[in-house]
């Protein structure tokens, strides 16, 4: 049975939704980190400071099967619930 670590990177405030979805799909727990994302805009001129948006990173450790279920559930929720997109990375864990 393969173990994986899932990192879901979402805008600030969406971590709770991700976790709710993950719990429905059988995750047993999650850890949330605060982070900031990159600002892709090329700022110029006065008031040209960059705004790096606040993000949350949700870490869930689970088996490949559960990860698949979680991702499907998250997709289902985020497709209709949320205006914003996020990314999920899956890392092999030992």
């Amino acid at each position: 049975m393969d173990n994986f670590t899932m990192l879901a990177i979402v805008p600030l405030g969406y971590a709770d939704k991700v976790i709710a979805a993950a719990n429905e799909a059988g995750a047993s727990g999650a850890t949330i980190f605060r982070a900031r994302g990159a600002d892709h805009t090329h700022a110029e001129g006065f008031l040209s400071f960059k705004v790096e948006p606040e993000e949350e990173i949700v870490l869930i450790a689970a088996t490949g099967e559960v990860i698949n279920a979680i991702c499907a559930k998250i997709h289902e929720k985020f497709e209709k619930d949320s205006a914003r997109d996020g990314s999920i990375y899956i890392l092999p864990a030992r």
Partner: peptide
């Protein structure tokens, strides 16, 4: 207010 104006647009649209 400036920050909110400059916050990158919704990620889905942007990508």
């Amino acid at each position: 207010l400036i920050y909110r104006m400059k916050t990158p647009p919704l990620l889905s649209e942007e990508s």
